[in-house]
Design a protein around this nucleic acid. Structure first.
Lengths: 155, 155
DNA sequence: GAGGTAATGATGACACATCAACAAAGCTGT
DNA sequence: ACAGCTTTGTTGATGTGTCATCATTACCTC
């Protein structure tokens, strides 16, 4: 990490890296705008509502919810508080572990994710998969998994 | 955007999309941690310092700076205010256009980006390019450009 | 050049993300 | 049983990003 002579990015690498940063920014902005406009939800709301709605009873322990979306505890707690204030979820006691906290999807929350999902999936298709060939999707599958592995394992 | 029967993502697409979201999150977190730890800068600081340091005199009009990094005016203005408070940049009058505002890189700002850049580039290599083959980089170049084009042109 | 429109930038309010500090409960080894 | 460590979750402070709104100035057309 501390090279005496830093190896700068060559022209192609710099272009790819800048394109990645711009893609990340624009894709995030497009998702946020679409969700907000069509459903009044944020990306953060949506991210939590998905695993909650996939648990049959809409009841997930906070710890497990955090693992499902890959968030830190603090971020999760703050987001749950905001969503609780809007009636999308409700905190309940955890019977197994007095430290823990269960998060319950309310009827209102289930209605919101049910209404939001189709248009959001369409947006993901429109701005992502529709522009890619089958071979490219395979490459992305392989590349993303490898990069993620390097980021999450190891020091 | 409004299909009667929404086409859900198939298993592979869902995996790729989840991997993309996780990659974005982890890559951002890794950059943020590295920059903060090694240089006391944020990603936002770094993003603005790069085009400022590339202008020979370290003087860029706010509008052009916004175009260089692809930010909205409001976001740029807030970030400049925060960086001005820490002495990294300084606002000056724009001689050509009384509406405008020039942003000047201070000596302190130039020292910060000079000190930060090598380790940051190493981090980008470590977590991104080092894991990719030449062919994969070409594919990403093509894919990112195409996706970005769809996002930024057209409605 | 006067009036309407567009461009530029600042600001306040709010949502989101991260960090450090804290509290409470479980776990472990003696 | 107890002391120490870990796990789980909350909170407050601060930095970041977006939106709506505003003020100022430039531009454009008549």
């Amino acid at each position: 990490m501390t090279a005496a002579t830093p190896r700068w990015l060559d022209e192609r690498e710099a272009r790819v890296w800048m394109a990645y940063l711009a893609l990340q920014r624009e894709l995030h902005a497009a998702q946020e705008r679409q969700l907000s406009r069509d459903s009044g939800l944020s990306i953060a709301d949506y991210a939590l509502l998905v695993p909650l709605s996939e648990a049959g009873d809409g009841l997930v322990r906070s710890r497990d919810l955090g693992a499902a979306v890959g968030w830190e505890r603090s971020r999760l707690s703050h987001q749950i508080s905001r969503m609780e204030k809007r009636g999308l979820v409700r905190r309940e006691n955890c019977p197994d572990d007095a430290r823990g906290c269960m998060v319950r999807l309310t009827d209102e929350g289930r209605a919101a994710i049910t209404a939001a999902a189709p248009a959001h999936v369409d947006t993901v298709r429109h701005f992502f998969f529709d522009s890619l060939t089958d071979t490219e999707i395979d490459t992305l599958d392989s590349v993303f998994t490898r990069l993620l592995d390097r980021l999450t394992t190891g020091p």
